[in-house]
Amino acid sequence: MDTPSPHATSIIDPTLLARVVKGDQQAFSQLYDYSSTLLFTLAVRMLGNREEAAELLQDVYLEVWRKVSRYDVGRGTPIAWMITLTKSRAIDRLRARASRGYRATNSLEGGMATQVADPAPSPLETQADQELRTAIGAAVAGLPQSQQQAIELAYYEGLSHTEIATRLNQPLGTVKTRIKLGMSKLRESLQQWGHQGELQ
């Protein structure tokens, strides 16, 4: 394994991708180190098991390697791009499963918020990552359970509001409101956190 660098997962330098584009093996290795824990966590959360999450990550990194030249920094950070790729490939798998009648068991591995009060920092994590993680965890944990649940079903299981309403046996309007309120509160919390950060 490469020597940990001070890079944070959330602040992968776009120039690293430029090096990957040029076929720099070292750069690709670094990219993996910076991003794999977050993407694997996301994949496990969505798919519900580590084996399939590992398979998914193989697909995702292969796609990153092939499509990296199409990454456009103007459209978001490298990690956001990789999160999107992971999410859409995971949703593809979830839908394929649904068509085979597979019952999802992924909720066993915890909800959207950090379940452990203060997880031990990964060796690759910087202080910046930790603070960000804490802030987001707190913002999510501050939501009412019903709002967390609705957002979680949409975000991690790829369900539409109609499907969520059916799953929860709730009126469609209620589900929409929960997602809207939840997302708005998250936005406010993170904006406040950002402003406080600026003041420090």
């Binding site: 966590t41 959207m112 975000y155 998250l186």
Partner: peptide
């Protein structure tokens, strides 16, 4: 906001063999 949500999850480290496989 949406792009940050996965950061709220408890981190799960991928198996060490995964990197070798991918590389």
């Amino acid at each position: 906001v949406a792009a940050l949500l996965p950061l709220a999850l408890s981190p799960i480290t991928p198996p060490p063999s995964l990197k070798a496989t991918i590389m």
